[in-house]
């Protein structure tokens, strides 16, 4: 078996010395969409923050075979892991165009202008508002900008934290179409933390269920959809 793109082994995470993750093992293969389910406070966001080393962790995290636990967030991002945090993570005072440029601020190649043009093609709404500040965009537009900005990094792994939060249902459906298409066309692996389990499982191949900082279930998306406990807790039937 080849080495997965991301491998977390026995990862524990701490906030001010209090353990929030109690040793979890997660793998993500190249080009795969993996969903992380769990109740509020189960440690979903902490899992994503651990990957980017935004919290203190112990245990081993490897990206593409290289040890990244203990590295700085900026060096991890430069390796090709982009995260869209809860609340979008766009820079409200900067224009839409500057946000996209900022997404590529660590890149040294000549393709940045071309990438921005292609995102404007994908989201014409962003092109119209390119000189407006990101803070003046609506929630849906900001989420689109956040995704485009994250992909300006040309990452191999995209971490999405609750992208549907605060968006109208029709926009959420569209958002997941976009994510599925990014995964299919660009081969970007995605780790998706999401309350909307129905839609998330639709585009995911595999999933994990977290409970109070422990991993309680790891299965394919189909198996998760059939699982009684998951159906009861996250699918509402």
């Amino acid at each position: 078996m080849t080495e997965p793109l991301l491998r977390m082994s026995g990862v524990r995470a701490y906030y001010d010395g209090v353990e929030a993750l109690h040793g979890i093992d997660i793998t993500v293969d190249t080009g795969e969409v993996v969903v992380v389910l769990g109740a509020n406070g189960a440690g979903k966001t902490t899992t994503l923050r651990s990957i980017c080393q935004l919290t203190t962790t112990t245990g081993e995290i490897r990206f593409d075979g290289d040890l990244i636990s203990g590295a700085s967030t900026s060096s991890i991002v430069r390796r090709g892991i982009a995260m869209v945090p809860q609340g979008r993570g766009t820079l409200g005072d900067l224009s839409v165009e500057d946000n996209l440029l900022a997404g590529a601020v660590t890149r040294r190649d000549k393709g940045v202008a071309g990438d921005i043009a292609s995102w404007y093609e994908t989201f014409p709404r962003l092109a119209q508002r390119r000189h407006q500040t990101a803070g003046s965009l609506s929630g849906g537009e900001q989420q689109m900008l956040a995704i485009a900005r994250a992909l300006m990094l040309r990452p191999r792994l995209l971490l999405m934290d609750e992208p549907s939060l605060g968006l109208a249902p029709v926009i959420v459906r569209d958002l997941f179409d976009v994510l599925a298409r990014i995964n299919r066309e660009r081969g970007v692996a995605i780790v998706l933390v999401e309350q909307n389990a129905v839609l998330a499982l639709d585009i995911a191949q595999r999933g994990y269920v977290l409970e109070a900082g422990n991993l309680v279930l790891s299965a394919s998306a189909d198996q998760l959809r059939q699982d009684d406990a998951v159906r009861l807790a996250y699918l509402g039937n």
Binding site: C52, L54, S72, T73, S74, S75, V77, R78, A82, M83, P85, G89, T90, L91, G92, D93, L94, D98, L101, A102, G103, V105, T106, R149, L153
Partner: peptide, 22 residues
């Protein structure tokens, strides 16, 4: 590039970190 990094950090430190900015 440094100016852009500066404006990002001035706007939001946590999110700037996620852009790979030192």
């Amino acid at each position: 590039r440094l100016g852009l990094s500066f404006r990002c950090v001035a706007n939001d430190v946590a999110n700037s970190r996620l852009l790979g900015i030192d």
